[in-house]
Amino acid sequence: MTSAAAALPLDRSPLQRLSSALYLRPALLTFLLLTPPLLWLGVIYLGSLFTLLAHSFFALDEFSGVMVREFSLATWKEFFGNPANWDVVIRSALMAIAVTLAAALIAFPIAYYMVRYAGLRMKAVLYLGVMLPLWSSYLVRVYAWKLILAKEGIVSWFANTLHLGWLLDLVLDIPEIGGPSLSTSYLGTFIVFTYIWLPFMILPVVAALERVPGSVIEASGDLGAKPGQTFRKVILPLAFPGVVAGSIFTFSLTLGDYIIPSIIGKSVPFLGETVYRLQGTAGNVPMAAAFTVVPIVIMGIYLTLAKRLGAFDAL
């Protein structure tokens, strides 16, 4: 033992000494490596977020409309007291739920085909097909949808050519979600949201399905399960965390988006638009901050539920 210690050269360079000092103190090394990113996350990211949220405890002066930097619950009182604010929250949440469900329903068969049936080349084509829209401008795609869904757009032209105009009118006559045309109704907003966020659902579901071992499915069949039973009892439970992971994306993205509802739909305000207007147009930062808390709370509840369902194992 003593001979090994004696073998260490005595006049080491400072760099070498630093290196061995750090090697002997792994905790210090971890601390040094983690401090910069943690500072970034803590100060720049979370710090500014909490500063914004803290603004919801300020209030606007009734008379001048200038923000008073004193603790006050007036903003929150106004937030909860005004039913128009609740409308915005409920409308956005319902839209996010509807879009998430639709995206899951569309994404699952596509993902299933990609994983189970598509050959190597077909798989590459499908991957490309799913990702390709993400590489083109989001705005261009939304504006294109506006033209597609317009009263004199391609969808209604198609419906009329096939003498199915009555069907489209029937759909548009549904109270609440209908309207004069697809592009000026909730239905149109819903279609475009689903289209835009669909890739974010497909990809996690593909990842989850790929982790379902083929042997398990074969074993299920060997044990006498019908295909339907295998799907319900084996594949779906194993792939479900992937669906939940995808739903986190579709849900939160729909909840916060303010561009789609401003271009397509009947001009009813959603959460993102409301924050944008309160902050940008009115200079009512406290109320905008209060509105910002809402999606955070909703997502907090959602993530807790998702964690219980094992969503984070499939990310």
């Binding site: 008379f63 005004n82 128009a84 001009s267 409301t274 207007r277 309160l278 009512n284 109320m287």
Partner: peptide, 20 residues
Amino acid sequence: KGCVPYYRWVSDYIAVLGGR
């Protein structure tokens, strides 16, 4: 009595668009 200031125009117009 004063006039209704702009910040109220903003929040009330959001309510009008929302159907309230």
